[in-house]
Structures are given as C-alpha cells and as structure tokens.
Simulated assay, not measured.
Amino acid sequence: MHASQKRSAGLGLALASAFAFGGSGVAAKPLIEAGLDPLHVVWLRVTGAALVMLPVAWRHRRLVRERPVLLAGFGLFAVAGVQAFYFASISRIPVGVALLIEYLAPALVLGWVRFVQRRPVTRAAAVGVVLAVGGLACVVEVWAGLGFDAVGLLLALGAACCQVGYFVLSDQGAGHGETADSEPPHPVGVIAYGLLAGAVVLTVVAGPWAMDWAVLGGSAEMNGHDVPAWLLLCWIVLLATVLAYATGVVSVRLLSPQVAGVVACLEAVVATVLAWVLLGEHLSPPQLVGGGVVLIGAFIAQSSAPRPPSGPVASGPGVTVAGAAEAQEPAGTGSELSRPPASP
C-alpha cells in the first residue's frame, strides 16, 4: 500500500472510530432513562464486547503471563473506570458536556508530568492546558454557579482521571523488566483482555443479577420516539465498543498516535451533534464556543507534550487505543494502546 493510500485508509478508520465512540452515550442514555442503572448499562456493554472478543483473547493468551499489570490496568481504568464514570455522569448532565470534561485528560496528564514526574513541558503545552480549562469554564457555565448538576460534573471528571490513571500506568510500565528486543504487546490483544478484566470488575461492582432485565425487552424513548431497547444495546456493544476500538487501533497503526489523536477530537463533536438531534439536548452558544476551545486546547496539549523514553508499551504497534480509550491517549504520553475512551 502506497503512503498516500495508507494515510487515506488510516484517516477513514480514525473517522469511523470517532463516530462510533461518539454514539455510545447517545445510545446509552435512553436505556438509563428507561430504568436501567448506569452501572448495569456499562456491564452490558463491556461484557457483551468481551464475549465478541473472546476469540481474539484466546489467540493472544500469552499476554496474561507476559503483561498481567498492563491488562489489569487497562481493564480497571480504561474500560471499567472510564465507562462507569461516564455513563453515570450522562445520567445527570448532557452527553456533550460529560465528554468535553473528559477532554481535560491531556491537561491532567501534563500536570502529572510537570508536577509529579518533574519533567519540563513546552510553553505551547501550557497554553493548551489554559485553553482547555478556560473552555471548560464556559461549558459548565461557571458564571451561573455551575449550570449543571455538580455530582454529574464530578463523575465526568472521574472519567478523565481514570484515563490519566491508565496513561500513567502505561508510561511507568514501559521498559520495566524488558529488553530492547522484547516484542511489544499487540494492542488488539490488550483490548480483548482489558474488556474481559473490566467485565470481571464490573460484575462484582454492578451486581447484574439485580438488573431489571425486562427493560431490554421493551422500548426506550429517544426525543419522543420509541426505539427497541435491544437495538440500542446492539449499537452500544457492536458499534460503540467492538467496531470503535478495532478501527481506532488500526488507524493508529496506519497513521500515528498524534494524527489519530487529533481526529479523535471529533468524537466530542459527534457526541454533541447526535445528542442534539437524537436526544434533544441543546447547548447554548457560549457552551458551544467553550467546547471548541476545549478541543483546541486538548489538540495543542496532545501535540506539544514531551515524549517519554520509548519502551515496549510506549512503542507498541498501534489506541484512544483511549480510550483511551470511552478513549484516545494524549500523543505525548507515548502509549499507542489506549483509546479515550472518553466514551468509552
């Protein structure tokens, strides 16, 4: 494949991933409003995707022995943590607002790099952080005493912190006990086992045996229209999880974490537009402007963050995985495994 064809294919897959991830909250919110607990919706999403990815997990079963910490961290933070906090937040605040708050993750990662690891950051990266925080102030309407539910805002911030936790874990685990010739973990295998680990954690936390299963046999309302609940669940599992992660990983391999991360910023735009059209969630002009500033700040922060020394995780074969994925990882952290899941 020629370079131009490779780039075009990568951009197409990155766009597909952003659109797929962007629809997760829009499909989940009607199920939550129909009577399902947010944690139960997350459990259905993660467990369903884990079952679909079982053949992939079996093919990469050596990862359980070679990378147990990485798999556990991905399952706990990038899968269970991000998605649980995100779905809980959208039960209280608009989908677009929750996802934009998650885009503070690049700024938080830079804060970790500067103040905890005591590594320098560029002036442009600092500007990106200031823009992201300032834009977020417009999104949450600080001049109105926070125009949204404070608990919902804190839950969305928790999702951003979970993304940071996985990024830091990947960064600190890079190269530990490994040689330069070690084979990097395959990102699809990491995703498969991350989903399995997340499903185990969520089974304990969510208690699916207490779920109102009858809701899945009924319908959920989307902006005045009834939609079969099972159809929304298929959307969440197959499109917003399996397809989203798979296309995101391949796009990073064809492009680069930086370019794929920039395209992933469209996820917030997609989520906001879909929530506007399908859920009737309207944002005010100042909030829309603030959202744009958040994305610009996140882009600058991702593009300007310093790179850590490369290692088996940092130089993996291709994330946002984040997320990282809900998830895409800030390019400066070096890991290519996560997608941000912001909406995970």
Rank of each mutant, 00 (worst) to 15 (best):
V249D: 02
V263T: 08
S8L: 15
R59A: 15
G198Y: 00
V133Q: 03
T47C: 13
F87Q: 05
L195D: 00
G248Q: 08
L157H: 00
W58F: 14
G23I: 04
S89C: 11
G217H: 05
G261M: 09
V121S: 06
L70F: 03
Y103R: 04
S170W: 10
R118W: 07
F77P: 02
G297Y: 06
L202E: 02
G147V: 11
Y245I: 07
A275F: 10
L155F: 01
L131V: 10
V140P: 08
A78N: 01
R59H: 11
L232D: 09
E33K: 09
L99N: 03
P55R: 00
Q83G: 12
L155H: 00
G145H: 11
R7D: 15
E281A: 08
A180R: 13
G217V: 07
G128F: 09
P341C: 11
L36F: 07
A105R: 03
V109Q: 01
V113H: 03
E267Q: 15
S256I: 02
E183P: 12
V41A: 10
T179H: 04
P120L: 11
L71H: 01
A197Y: 00
L238R: 02
V249L: 04
L154I: 14
V140H: 08
C138K: 05
F85P: 01
A301C: 12
V46P: 05
S304C: 12
A14I: 14
M1L: 13
Q172R: 11
T47W: 05
S170R: 04
G290Q: 02
C161W: 03
R45N: 07
I191K: 00
I90R: 08
A14N: 12
S338N: 12
S24V: 12
V204H: 04
G217M: 10
L31R: 01
L11R: 04
G73Q: 14
L36R: 04
T320G: 15
R45A: 12
L36W: 05
V319F: 00
V121K: 03
R114K: 03
L278G: 04
P344V: 02
T203R: 08
L266D: 14
G217L: 13
A325E: 02
G311A: 06
R339N: 10
S89E: 07
R118P: 12
H176E: 15
L337H: 03
T241A: 04
L31T: 06
D37R: 08
W235T: 11
V263S: 07
Y86C: 12
T179M: 08
L202S: 04
M53G: 05
L136C: 15
A125M: 10
P120A: 15
I236Y: 00
L233M: 13
G23W: 02
L146F: 13
A271Q: 10
P330H: 08
A271G: 11
R114A: 10
S91F: 04
Y245E: 05
C138E: 06
G280H: 04
C138P: 03
W230R: 15
G134T: 08
V52I: 15
V41F: 06
G332L: 10
A314K: 03
V95T: 13
L76R: 03
V259T: 13
V250T: 13
A18H: 03
Y86L: 15
P120Q: 07
V133P: 05
V52A: 11
G318Y: 06
A174L: 07
Q302N: 13
H186S: 14
V151Y: 02
L196Y: 00
G261F: 11
K29G: 11
L13Y: 11
R62C: 06
G334R: 08
Y193M: 07
